[in-house]
């Protein structure tokens, strides 16, 4: 067992570095359109990976992840548009507000599990969406809120590198967490809360912490995304976006580190090809996600692992 992992780890690292180098060189040979796709893909990598940390590793299937992205985006967006605060200062505030709301929602859900937690987060998410849509004076409702770019002049290339750095930061953090004691606690809590508590794991703290971390990460991603789009609409905290995040994670492989990354990049690229034939991409993602959830609950990563062990 150990011998095998030792042998497979190295090529994987090499593959990772090559993929990263290729990715980093995108602005050199991709047109503006595909560069946009890559940026959106990076946003979804952050969203899916952080949702996976919460849902896939602690078992708390939250439907409020898109809402946290919206909180981050609207916080720094409104501060920039209404108070003239530089987005670089608004960004940490957006993260902080999302983290605080994560703390609130995580605490609210602490005595619930399974379907009840999901219903609560769904309700929370819809409450935010209704407020943002209706408070036209502040958020411009469905018209969308115009925001400045993160810094300096607008540039796709710069945005790409900013999002790439951000995504790498998030992935590095998640990796660190998963390999730490906290990561082991996450998985113990997902497997069996009662047993975990009987072994000295502070289940309440662990579960809330997962909400705070995931919420802050979504707030970070949403805030960056808002300043890249320069127009924030309630779509960012809608269930549609939540669905994409969920579908990407499920298709890639929930509860695995690589899964959400693969799922996000794969689906985002795929959607650009499907878009040519009309707006069918959501339907097709849904069907694929259903098939994956039904026949390969471990997602693409699971299929790959099965394939590897079969060979």
């Amino acid at each position: 067992m150990e011998v095998i992992t030792a042998n497979t780890k190295k090529p994987l690292t090499v593959v990772g570095i090559v993929v990263l180098a290729l990715f980093a060189a995108f602005p050199l040979f991709l047109g503006q359109y595909w560069l946009h796709t890559a940026i959106v893909g990076l946003f979804y990598v952050m969203m899916a990976s952080s949702w996976n940390l919460l849902a896939g590793y602690t078992g708390q299937v939250s439907f409020a992840h898109a809402a946290f992205a919206g909180v981050g985006a609207y916080t720094s967006g409104i501060l920039a548009a209404k108070a003239g605060l530089p987005p670089l200062l608004g960004l940490p505030i957006g993260i902080a507000v999302a983290a605080v709301l994560g703390l609130a929602l995580g605490s609210l859900c602490i005595r619930m599990g399974g379907i009840y937690l999901s219903l609560t987060t769904l309700g929370f998410s819809e409450i935010l969406r209704i407020i943002v849509t209706n408070e036209y004076e502040i958020t411009r409702g469905t018209m969308g809120l115009k925001t400045p770019p993160l810094f300096g002049e607008y540039s796709k290339t710069v945005s790409f590198y900013v999002l790439l750095a951000a995504a790498l930061l998030i992935l590095w953090l998640i990796r660190r967490i998963l390999n730490s004691d906290l990561g082991a606690s996450f998985r113990a809590v997902q497997n069996d809360e009662t047993a975990a508590a009987s072994l000295g794991i502070p289940v309440v703290r662990v579960r809330i912490l997962a909400f705070v971390i995931a919420g802050a990460m979504a707030g970070f991603a949403g805030s960056l995304y808002g300043h890249y789009l320069m127009l924030i609409t309630p779509h960012i905290l809608s269930l549609d976006l939540m669905f994409l995040v969920l579908a990407m994670t499920v298709i890639g492989g929930m509860g695995t580190f690589i899964g959400p990354i693969v799922g996000a990049l794969f689906l985002e690229t795929l959607s650009e090809y499907i878009r040519v034939y009309g707006e069918y991409h959501i339907l097709i993602f849904g069907l694929v996600a259903l098939a994956v959830a039904r026949f390969a609950p471990q997602g693409l990563v699971g299929l790959w692992r099965q394939f590897r062990s079969a060979v």
């Binding site: 969920l246 579908a247 499920v250 039904r294």
Partner: peptide
């Protein structure tokens, strides 16, 4: 997750 995807 399955019923959520189904709804979409």
């Amino acid at each position: 997750i399955v019923t959520f995807i189904l709804s979409i």
